[in-house]
């Protein structure tokens, strides 16, 4: 028969855990709201930038010169920007990201070097002996464009120096609170999607289209990394919120089960004692 005192101790311990997970859930929920707002606030800029880029690319396609960041080369080395949270307790999020990146690295026939953003990705890549080019941590909660600049400078320099021939970014796309998708995007060479809305508009470019393109492309890379960070951050917070809510629910369920067990044990003990007393009285009377 389980000892009443041990059960009581376990109930208390589970209750304490539930308090912690509930607090974490609420923190994650408030951070998630902020992160989602940031994603939304950044979208108009990203949208517009994509449009301008697609216009410019169409415009400059016929020209002999192309900008280094749009130049396609034979691929010998790939760089992967691997964006993960700094902390765990976010359900399967970290695992999924790491698994997807591993899969990507294994499938590519060429050398891949990794830049990790976030401690979880760093630990994973280092543990598995990947070629880690650089590590960035402690950015997630309050990213500004300024925080991104060192990263994008590194990436752009590696590309223009010829050290790598293609750059991808892996991050968790925020689909909804319940759903975050590990997503792989090509960063450099920059490829412009067709834009129907402004196709055929004959723009005047000042100074000229190539010069505008040259100022736009580095910013486009900054912006894409920044957006990926925002998405990753929103994903992390919502994944953590959901995971912590599940943990809290499980804890309450456990407390219920344990309380039931506790009561059974207590009743069994009382019954046992009663029997003893009754038995004792009967023996005296007999």
């Amino acid at each position: 028969m389980p000892n009443i005192r041990t059960i009581r101790r376990r109930v208390r311990s589970v209750e304490n855990t539930a308090k912690i997970t509930r607090a974490m859930e609420m923190i994650a929920a408030s951070k998630m709201r902020r992160a989602q707002q940031q994603v939304l606030a950044g979208r108009p800029y990203a949208e517009k930038m994509r449009q301008v880029l697609s216009n410019l690319t169409a415009q400059t396609q016929g020209l002999d010169e192309s900008h280094p960041l749009q130049e396609r080369r034979e691929v010998n080395t790939i760089q992967l920007l691997h964006i993960t949270p700094d902390r765990g307790l976010a359900g399967g999020l970290n695992n999924n990201l790491n698994r997807r990146s591993t899969q990507f690295i294994l499938e590519e026939r060429v050398k891949v070097n990794v830049i990790t953003i976030g401690k979880k990705g760093r630990d994973f890549m280092v543990r598995h002996g990947q070629d880690v080019r650089a590590v960035f941590t402690d950015l997630a909660d309050h990213v500004t464009v300024g925080d991104i600049l060192p990263i994008s400078r590194l990436v752009v320099d590696d590309y223009t120096s010829g050290a790598v021939d293609r750059v991808y970014v892996m991050f968790a796309l925020f689909v909804s609170t319940m759903n975050q998708q590990p997503t792989l995007r090509q960063l450099i060479p920059v490829e412009a999607a067709k834009d129907e809305a402004s196709a055929g508009v004959d723009y005047i470019y000042e100074p000229d289209s190539l010069a505008v393109l040259a100022t736009l492309l580095p910013r486009f890379v900054d912006m894409q990394i920044y957006q990926a960070m925002l998405e990753a951050n929103a994903s992390e917070q919502s994944a953590r919120m959901v995971a912590m809510r599940a943990a809290t629910d499980n804890a309450s369920e456990m407390v219920e089960d344990l309380t039931l067990e506790l009561n059974k044990a207590r009743q069994a003990m009382i019954t046992g004692e009663l029997l003893d007393i009754v038995g004792g009285v009967a023996a005296l009377e007999g």
Partner: peptide, 19 residues
């Protein structure tokens, strides 16, 4: 402040992109 100098834009300006 355009890259090539100040520019003023009035309504019905031609399509333009500038740094």
């Amino acid at each position: 402040p355009g890259a090539e100098g100040q520019l003023g834009i009035l309504p019905r300006h031609a399509p333009l992109i500038t740094a």
